[in-house]
Nucleic acid binder design. Structure first.
Ligand SMILES: [Mn+2]
Ligand SMILES: [Mn+2]
Ligand SMILES: [Zn+2]
Ligand SMILES: [Zn+2]
Lengths: 172, 172
DNA sequence: AGAATATTGCAAACTGTTTGCAATGACATC
DNA sequence: GATGTCATTGCAAACAGTTTGCAATATTCT
């Protein structure tokens, strides 16, 4: 869908998916409209946070977002509250990677969602390009379950880290 | 909050899966052997905890297990430490339902795993009887990802709660 | 029984997150 | 552009779940 900024070196081979990037403008504009439509105010902290969020290429914690925007000194509590608001409005979605930290990511305007692979060696988080559990959700729906949603993440060792550890083993 | 007992006719209809139950004896024996094989000691707190765990039919938090065994007064810290140990040894597995609480469940001796449905109305947690994402894991493996594992949960409204809310709507 | 070592309890620290409240800021109306 | 209203913010403090340090205790081995 999107071409990679880097020439196709070895670096970006074997990726689960290349997509974790947002064009800043449409994302920010969408968020601004959602806020306005909800009757919420457009404030300096909120704008700064929205802008900062577009610079992340992976899910970020509240603390990380706070640091990313630290220049425009606002309080950490404001970041917590803003993210809660953004989440309620569907501007961001929660990502739970199973360490005790809540993360978020800007939701893509098209409403699609994706899951992640987390490397347990280098901690890198990669998006996966498709969600394949509609089938299971449909089966649950037929059993009477409703308003279904799900959370799914994969863990393991990424190709890079695997390669490195093999190289290490060879030299040792 | 408390769940009312219902006529057994409807009770087990429309279930995602009926299985969240362990026979106490084999589970405890298995755990005991694993502990011994690992060179760890068989202590009164550990035994009490193992025994208490078999009485849960859904994933339990540290605090819940603590309360369940409170008679044999042991410290909450001991419960934390024991569960960490049990988890390392594969006696229990971590279940993360996305509220900030770590839960565990006794692992079935056959090594199989399952995922859960969490009702956002009554908080009930039901096991699902099959894991259907081997396919996606295999695809990742072919891309060079290794030592794969995953976490998956479903959320929504269970058939019971859905039925209740419909009844409510009718009477209103 | 005695030595070696793993485990426990207790208190205190820690991390991520939430809450209360008074001061400030946004925005609609005049 | 001033004014009133209400949402939003900052600051301090509370909070929940979990982890750590350490001395006392319990288990296992010989
Ligand atoms: Mn993502
Ligand atoms: Mn289960
Ligand atoms: Zn890696
Ligand atoms: Zn329910």
């Amino acid at each position: 869908m999107k071409k990679n900024p880097k020439p196709s070196s070895k670096r970006n081979e074997n990726r689960a998916c290349a997509e974790h990037h947002h064009d800043p403008k449409p994302s920010i504009e969408r968020a601004a409209r959602i806020l306005k439509d909800a009757g919420l105010k457009s404030t300096k902290p909120r704008s700064a946070l929205l802008e900062a969020m577009t610079r992340f290429h992976a899910p970020f914690s509240t603390e990380e977002l706070f640091r990313a925007v630290k220049a425009s000194d606002l309080d950490l509590v404001t970041v917590y509250r803003s993210l809660a608001t953004f989440s309620d409005l569907g501007i961001v979605s929660r990502v739970d990677l199973g360490d005790g930290v809540v993360r978020y990511e800007l939701r893509s305007p098209d409403g699609s969602h994706h899951h992640h692979f987390v490397c347990q060696e280098c901690q890198k988080v990669e998006p996966l390009d498709s969600c394949e559990i509609k089938a299971q959700e449909n089966r649950l729906r037929e059993l009477g379950y409703s308003q279904l949603s799900h959370r799914l993440e994969f863990f393991g060792i990424c190709p890079d880290c695997r390669e490195h550890s093999r190289a290490d083993a060879r030299t040792r």
